[in-house]
Each structure stands twice: as C-alpha cells, then as structure tokens.
Simulated scan of single mutants.
Amino acid sequence: MPDRLVHIVDDVPELDDTSELTMVLVLDGFLDAGNAAGRAAQHLVDLSDGRVVATFDVDELHDYRARRPPMSFVRDHYASYDAPRLVVRLLADAGGTPYLLLQGPEPDTRWEAFCVAVREVVERFGVTRVVGMGSVPMAVPHTRPIAITHHANNPGLLTGESPWRGELRIPSSAQALLEIRLGEWGHDAMGFVAHVPHYLAQMDYPRASAALLEQVEIAGRLTVDLSGLRAEAEDREAEIARYLAANAEVADVVEALERQYDAFERAEESGAGLLAEEQRLPTGEELGKEFERFLAGLDGPESSDGDED
C-alpha cells in the first residue's frame, strides 16, 4: 500500500497572495445526466492553460474491471491506453483569479481515505470553499428552465431555495460523502445538481452545463466565459426542435410533459399540491422509446464532430 494517496506539488507561487480560494469538484461516474458536469469541467479546462498541482493514486481507488479504461488496437498491436486520472488542476478565471479543479473518476473504493486525501489538498492550498457539480435525470421538459438543487454543509452558503421537502433516501456518492466530511472538519463545501430531462440524459446537454457554471460563478466568486458553451446549447436545442417538428408523436409526448410541469408550477405557487388532477406524466419508457432514434442520430457519425471535448 502506498504511503500517500495524493501527491501534492510543493511549490505553487500563483497561490501565495490568495486569501480566498475556490476548488471546483466534479467526479465522473454517478451524478452526471447529460454529461452536464463533465462537460462543464472540460469547458473550464479548455478556457485556462492550467497545470496539475495534485495527483491521486488511481490504482488505489479505481475498479478497472467494473469501469474498463479504453485503449486502441491498431491492425496488429495495442497502440495506446487511456489511463484514468484523478487530479487537481490550477486554473484561472476570466479575470485572472486562480482556482482549483478536482476532476476525474469517482473512487470505487476507499471513500473515507479519499476524503482524508482531499482534506490534505484543501488544507495545503488554503481552499476556502469547495463547490461541486452534478446532474440527475428528471421528468421535466427541455422547453422549461433548468432547475437546480442547491446543497451545502453550512446553511449560510446556500444561494437558492431547495425544491425538496422533507427527507429523501438516496444512493450515496463519494462526492456527497466528501461534503459531509469536510463540514465535520470545519471546511465549507457546497454544490449544485442540475435537473436534466430524462429523455435527453444519455446525450451531451450543454444547456445544463452552462446552468451549473452560472451557479459556480456565484458561489465561487469567479467569472467564466460561457459564450462557447451557450452556442453549443443553442445548436443542440435547434437539433431537438427540428426533430420534434418532424415527429408529431414525439412532440405530443413532450407537450404532455410540459402540461404536467406547468400544472406542478401552478400548484406550487398556490400551495394546492404537487400534482394536478387528471394530468398523466409520461413514463421514462415512453419517452425513451420515442427518443431512441433521435439520440442515435444526434450521437452518430454525422453529428459527433461537434460533441467532442
């Protein structure tokens, strides 16, 4: 077993005069419908010529047989191997403010040890707030605003109201556990989860990525150029609109979902209840069946060029 789970760069002069430091957190593999968080993280990397300042020992955290990394076979030999990397990068926002990005596959094992290792990063660099991103599939139409669930280990960090009432029992994640542990150790951590239309959850949905980064800007006190991401989102929305215009059955399903969403909003505003009477929510199977060809077409060879990171 290695002596250290994380290896941290000793000299980072860019942070010497920093009194407040945000670390953005995105772990792949669980909360990422529509690749919203992953695409948002890649957008941050693309915008800034940063460098790696901490590296986690992935061999201690990754289940290779459960999530096999891709590799290339060229004619008669293995040519390359895309090794999983879990790293912390030093980036800068549009105004030159430095911040950190912890990105990579969610650990499959040793969650508690991973949390301790992240704590070491937080304390070594003087991180003042950790801001996580995630996304979940929800029964919502793509024609309505992206809803965001706000969460934090300190109530004073919350920047919006929660749409949930009472207690929900949900599957745990390393990212969620980290927020709890950081709070226990006296470190502020918060996050945002975008609600992605569940019939679009298997494709890149940059509109949700932009919505997440808008929240990160506020919480992390950063400035991020979202113009490129918003252009991607407009192109994707146009593709969806063209498909709906040519497929009346699919459009009917989405319209039913819109009616359900609007009835829900009216009920919430009036306090009458969460679901309107005589409004049936389309099932995931119905939407999935109708959009199966649509998703295959958008992610096919003809359109994949614009979706590559």
Score class of each variant (00 low, 15 high):
G160R: 11
D188K: 13
H195A: 10
G186A: 04
V193K: 01
L200V: 11
E184M: 02
L168Q: 15
E167I: 15
H187D: 08
P163R: 12
E161K: 13
S162W: 01
S173C: 03
G186T: 05
L177M: 13
I170Y: 07
P197Q: 06
L182Q: 06
A189G: 08
A174N: 00
Q202A: 12
Y199A: 09
L182Y: 04
P171H: 07
G183K: 12
Y199V: 09
V193M: 09
Q202T: 14
E161M: 06
A194T: 04
S162T: 15
G183A: 14
E167Y: 15
A201Q: 10
A189M: 13
T159D: 01
A174S: 14
H195G: 12
W164D: 09
R169W: 13
V193E: 07
A176W: 04
E161Y: 03
S162Y: 01
G183M: 06
H198S: 03
S173W: 00
H195W: 06
H187W: 13
H198L: 05
W185I: 00
L200C: 07
H187R: 11
S162F: 03
I170N: 03
G186W: 06
L200A: 11
G186R: 05
E184D: 12
R181H: 14
R165I: 12
E167A: 11
I180T: 14
L200Q: 04
A201E: 15
P171R: 10
A201D: 05
L200M: 07
L177P: 00
V193I: 15
H195L: 04
H187G: 06
L177G: 09
L182H: 08
P197I: 13
G160I: 03
G160W: 03
G183N: 14
W164Y: 15
L177S: 03
A174H: 00
R169F: 08
G160F: 01
L168G: 02
D188E: 15
D188H: 15
I170P: 00
F192K: 01
T159Y: 06
R165C: 08
L177C: 05
G186I: 04
S172Y: 07
G160E: 08
P197V: 08
H195I: 03
W164F: 10
G160K: 10
Q175D: 13
H195T: 03
G183Y: 13
D188L: 08
G183C: 07
W164M: 10
L177N: 13
P163H: 05
